[in-house]
Amino acid sequence: MTDKSPPDLAERAFRRRRRQDAALVLPLFGVVIFITPLFTIFIKDVLVFGAPLAFLYIFGAWILLIVLARRMSRLLTKGDEGG
């Protein structure tokens, strides 16, 4: 994306729409990583950096979700003001 010129209305509406869709997908992603069998892959008696893998998986995925949510909330509120 090198084009910095302001996009037209339709393009802006499309982008906002896409951001909103992403905001809807994020919690679903959280559901997938926390309460589906995906979890069971990481439930192994393995220590990584001295900590159990399951522990690292939960807290790693958690902080990842928080980072994504932060990005998302910035994008969404920016969209509110700019568009």
Partner: peptide
Amino acid sequence: PTLVFIGWWW
């Protein structure tokens, strides 16, 4: 609660 809050838009 984490899931509910990151899905605040919903």
